[in-house]
Design a protein around this nucleic acid. Structure first.
Length: 127
RNA sequence: UUCGGAGCCAGGUCUUCGCUCUGUUCUUUGACCCAGCCAUGCGCGGGUAAAGCCGCGCUCUUCGAACGGAGAGGAAAGUCCGGACACCAGAGGGCAGGAUUCCCAUCGAAAGAGGGGGCACGGCGCGUCAAGGCGCCGUGACGGACAGUGUCACAGAAAACAAACCGCCCCGCGGGCAACUGCGGGGCAAGGGUGAAAAGGUGGAGCAAGAGCCCACCGCGCCGACCGGCAACGGCGGCGGCACGAAAAACCCAAUCCGGUGCAAGACUGAAUAGGGGACUCGGCGGCCCGCCGGAUAGUCCCGGGUAAGUCGCAUCCCGCCGGUCGCAGGUGCGGACAACCGCAUCGCCCGGCGCGACUGGUCCGCCUCGGCGGACCUGAGAGAAAUGAAGGCCCUCCCGCUCCGGCGGGAGACAGAAUCCGGCUUAUCGGCUCCGAAGCUA
RNA sequence: GCGGGCGUAGUACAGCGGUAGUAUGCGUGGUUCCCAACCAUGAGACGGGGUUUCGACUACCCCCGCCCGCA
């Protein structure tokens, strides 16, 4: 992001491969945030890369296709609005829980900011 | 106002921050492979001993930026039908399997849809002793049960070439004063009872008692070369006293139609690793070459199959003229045990043009006219762990609470999310609008 | 996305169109000093809705839920 605060969320910042999701599921560390579950692990390349994110919303946890789309959009929006708080060089998966679509967005934002601060000292950005 | 039917809409708007695709301009990266290595996208011009050097333009690719444009549904759903499209199979025909099923015409590519008619059943009204009949409304997967096979439990005497428990009646013998009754023989099928269904119905005549035994009306079956109707079918006439029961949404039969698989179809590109094949190096036979043999090894190069992955399929369409860009050189046969590879033969080609094929052109209105012209038809999503959103303000609709009747506060806004496309069917659905029909109220 | 199959007691399965069974589990009683085993006995189900039929777990249609395959 060459200018301004990084607010975008392009295709290069999203997890797109089944292998990436499988690696997160097998090796990632999990943080329970109530309405959603955050799984993370450092990216395999040693060179610093931007943090990538993937979202998961299952039908049994959230509901039908409309609710699943809505949950995934809200999770992506959370990351997009607050990605500057997240240390770089990670792969994340945000998994929706049943209560996600019932909570107001401001509540989710507070929880996400909290978990970002939790994650930042655990893995400081090596500049 | 209520009910029914048909059609349409699917909260609106503004601001900020975002996503996917796309147009223009600018910007970043790069230009498969082969010709020993590195380098060289294309064209034009310059420059040089020769250049891979320099400049300009263009094509594709790629990281971004700015300004524009487009961006979920009526069901996108269920995947129940039909088609397009793709691959596989296939001379033709048959079997198996599946679908459809009163008649007529219409729309449609087909599925299907709506319309009219017929028949059956149900409800209401009129009518009848009762039925038959007439009228209105509704419902119907509505071909065939004399082509065949099988089924009809329980109850009941009897359940499909009917049968006789109770019962009714007559005769004989016995008992009793009698009413009646016991036994035996015979007649009957009206009544009772069972059942989903008991083998025509009602009325009369008749009889010992009864019965289509007979008669009238109705119903039913068969026949008709008759009448009406395109037909389904209806009517009429004759014959038969009268079973021929139900169920094909049991198997089945008849008629008509249907190849299979599905975009995860399929086409192309294609690493790494493993494995396969070939050539050379290698070992053996040889003084050497050709050739032949070997492989349990190693190396180099090549080849096809093929995995991950990627691209296309895939995003309005059609016609004519004009313009632009791209493509158009290998094919066939034989031989070498052979797919690559090699050799030979044969047909054809090389530059340009014509021609053929593909792609492209436009997006608020008006004017200027440079971003092509004219016409028809219609409005246009194309993602890929999968875009079409998030937050806030105002308005609209509904609900709740408060009210000084002006309003104020809070909450809610249905069902539901494209995945190759199109046409139907079914299911879910807050509310609103228009039209038609019926009933009620008011004037 | 495309295609195929299955729903019966708590569980695993049977069930030519006619009273829904079997095993195990559960309850009660007996046996035993107690438990297990054993004996006796009892409760408990056709995923919903409609159609055909005298009658549907069964046939037909529509929903709901679950499972499997296909690059």
């Amino acid at each position: 992001m060459p200018h301004g605060p990084a607010m975008g969320l392009r295709a290069g910042q999203r997890l797109r491969r089944n292998a990436d999701f499988r690696a997160l599921r097998e090796q990632g560390r999990r943080l329970d945030c109530g309405a959603f579950l955050l799984t993370w692990r450092p990216r395999s390349e040693p060179i610093m890369r931007p943090t990538r994110v993937g979202v998961v919303a299952s039908r049994i946890a959230v509901g039908g296709a409309v609710e699943r789309n809505r949950a995934k959009r809200r999770l992506r929006e959370l990351f997009r609005r607050h990605q500057e708080l997240m240390p770089p060089g990670l792969d994340l998966v945000l998994t929706a829980r049943r209560s996600l679509n019932r909570l107001p967005f401001s509540e989710l934002e507070q929880r996400f900011i909290h978990v970002c601060r939790q994650l930042a000292p655990a893995r400081p950005p090596h500049v």
